[in-house]
Design a protein around this nucleic acid. Structure first.
Lengths: 203, 203
DNA sequence: ACGAAAAATTGCGTGCGCGCAAAATTCTGA
DNA sequence: TCAGAATTTTGCGCGCACGCAATTTTTCGT
């Protein structure tokens, strides 16, 4: 087990995330350059892009880091007699509960900054592959698992966009009555329960 | 109807698309810079980015331009007694038939160039909004329509990735038996037929 | 037909993303 | 312990994306 290397990589990755979030919260997200983050993390600017492919990525990653692994764990921990749709929905919804979303100011900043908002929604993509594995692990063939995982991901994105839309609009004083984020996510994914049921039925 | 303006915009947009595709096919996609495309279209480099947000976008747009409007038309042209799922699936699948995909060399270039491949898959996103309208137009509430449209889009992306993966792999001499693109798209979306059925049922 | 309003084009400046090759660091086997 | 292999970090350079403000083009009311 090669350890020193992986450990160091993980360390600088976390250092970059935390530096990025801290600086963004302190000076405003538009005011922090990649060079600032790199310097704060004690690393060269070029190295930043070995870890994150955009300026916003590190900031958002500070909040969304281990989402994928948490979801697979949540699904795996569920007894096998729980039907697949329920297990998946609960697992994904669980990731969008207040707990574990990092400091509350962070989410506000992300919701009110267009570039961060976009990046945040895109990170939902990171659940696709683990979700596929988890679904395939419950006996569905891989092809179907991929499509269902993609659908869940898409539904989560839609829910997220709605929520961010309203949260962002709240800045302008206009607040429309709408569900909480977990409720929105659940309702959206629930649309596919019939598809899960049909896919789980051996044909 | 303000016409001169819109007409001119449409003209330069098309000029940029065609110039981009032509140059990319001629010299290879990596060898053509934004400035080259702009010059070939008789427009300033800065203007290029008023029309397309990335270097690859114009090239891909030359092939995918009016996909959204074609899909809504295809759905609208279907008699109302055809069930929604069928109408949507046929409409989307119809867009991935050989016809209308532009010159065949173009698709090969896109399939074998990573940056273009990524961009091409992303353009599927452009069907989301029109698809939402079309579905909502058939009597489903907007919320559900959005989620279903997103799922269809996601399924199409998965199918596209599979197809591109194999097409790309064919370069390396490894060809795995797999369906044609339309068949892949159809099979993927078919997964959601139950969800469409359940959503169409008034509750 | 003309002048003001609206909108598109353009040049400029800045920061970003990344390929490449050299330098530094870490790992492996003897 | 140490030399060579493997991997990571870094500096450099290029082209891209885009905000901004000035300029040019198109539209519209009279």
């Amino acid at each position: 087990m090669t350890t020193l290397r992986e450990h160091k990589k993980q360390t600088t990755r976390v250092a970059l995330q935390e530096a990025a979030l801290r600086l963004a919260l302190a000076h405003g997200p538009e005011q922090v350059r990649v060079d600032d983050i790199a310097e704060a993390a004690g690393v060269s600017p070029r190295t930043y892009n070995n870890y994150f492919s955009s300026r916003e990525h590190a900031i958002v990653a500070a909040v969304t880091a281990q989402r994928g692994s948490r979801i697979v764990a949540a699904i795996a921990d569920r007894p096998d007699d729980v039907d697949l749709a329920t297990a998946v929905i609960d697992a994904v919804v669980g990731q969008y509960t207040d707990t574990g979303s990092g400091p509350p100011e962070a989410m506000l900043m992300i919701a009110t900054t267009p570039a961060l908002r976009t990046c945040y929604v895109e990170t939902v993509t990171s659940i696709e592959e683990p979700l596929t594995e988890a679904i395939a692990g419950r006996g569905l063939d891989r092809e179907t698992a991929e499509v269902l995982a993609a659908a869940v991901e898409a539904a989560a994105k839609v829910a997220l966009k709605r929520w961010l839309h309203f949260t962002g609009a709240a800045r302008g004083g206009l607040v429309i009555a709408t569900g909480s984020l977990p409720e929105l996510v659940r309702a959206a994914i629930e649309t596919f329960r019939p598809a899960f049921a049909a896919a789980a039925r051996p044909r």
